[in-house]
Structure formats: C-alpha cells, structure tokens
C-alpha cells in the first residue's frame, strides 16, 4: 500500500488506486496521553477512539510512505508530530536490539521506503537537526530506505506531485 500523510490539504491528481492520501488537518486527532494502554491494556489499539485509530493501521500497512510536514525547531510541526506520537500502538512494549541499540518490537508493520517532504522556511542548522531526527525515526518506524526533501511551501504541491509520479512510474 502507498500512503501520503500530509499536515495540510494538497491539490493532487492521483491516478493509482492503491495510493491513499490523508490530510491530517481535516481530522480530529488528540494528543497521546502516555498511558501505555496500547501496549498493556488493549494491545495494538489506542484507548482514545478518535480519528487516529484509522491512521496508524494505514501507516503499518504501507510500504511506500510519504510524509508531508511543516518543520518547527528542527522537528515535525504539531499536526504531524501529534499523529506520530499516536502511532505507538503499532509497536509492542517489548524491546529488541537493532544494531546493538535498544528499540521496540514492531507488530505487523511493513518495511518502508519513506520520503519525507519537509516544508517551510528552513535554516541550515534546522535542516541538520531534522536529518538527525529522521535517521532516528528510521530505526523506530521500520524505514528500510528514506529520503528527505526540503522545500518552500510555495513549491510544495509540485514537489509532492513529482514524488507521486515517481511512485506511479515504478
């Protein structure tokens, strides 16, 4: 499955059936309250029954993943970050070693080829922090490969369309 998760609406022409586009800003997603219910009470399910419970299964299933997010302080801005925090039901509480470092065991989560499109007015030091962040995400979010594209908001739709076309050409 191919998934585009965006923190704002985008005008895209998507021709393929197996591409799902989700605009997080149009959904009701509360922030994670850190209760660990998804690991220890109702494993694999978040106890907060809002729109996020439709999104993390899609993240888990996708093998091609496109995240589109504004950047703030070198990280994802609040809309995307809220969703990423709510996605921990796709992992188990239990820990494994990845390259000698401790990380969580994934549930049924496809290996991902991820493209992260980071937009906004992003300074070089901010880009460096974001690159470090995504490198860490790759270990925790089952990215087999990833690419980061920095772009201005005015170029965003074009940048996303170009990436989707690359998927469609595959």
């Amino acid at each position: 499955m191919k998934l585009i998760l965006s923190d704002r609406p985008l005008n895209l022409e998507i021709e393929e059936d197996d591409v799902e586009f989700i605009d997080l800003s149009s959904l009701k997603i509360n922030n994670c309250v850190g209760c660990f219910g998804c690991w220890t009470k109702t494993p694999g399910k978040c106890v907060i029954r809002d729109d996020a419970v439709k999104i993390y299964p899609a993240i888990a299933k996708s093998n091609k993943l496109l995240y589109v997010s504004r950047i703030k302080y070198g990280g994802y801005d609040a809309i995307m970050k809220t969703m990423l925090e709510r996605a921990i039901p796709i992992q188990q509480a239990f820990i494994r070693l990845v390259d000698g470092q401790t990380h969580h065991v994934q549930r049924q989560v496809a290996l991902k080829n991820a493209v992260i499109i980071a937009y906004g007015d992003i300074a070089d030091d901010e880009k460096d922090v974001f690159k470090k962040l995504v490198a860490r995400n790759a270990l925790n979010m089952n990215f087999e490969k990833y690419r980061i594209i920095f772009t201005a908001e005015s170029q965003l739709e074009q940048t996303v369309s170009d990436e989707v076309e690359k998927w469609e050409a595959l």
Binding site: P43, G44, Y56, P57, P89, F94, R107, Q108, V109
Partner: peptide, 16 residues
C-alpha cells in the same frame, strides 16, 4: 496489573 498476559501484549494485530 491490567489482567493482560505476555502473549496478549505480543499480538501482531493492529486495531483487529
């Protein structure tokens, strides 16, 4: 403490 076993916690299912 929540009455959940290790096996239950290890489920590979998500939202099922």
């Amino acid at each position: 403490k929540n009455g959940i076993t290790k096996e239950q916690m290890e489920t590979m299912n998500i939202e099922e």
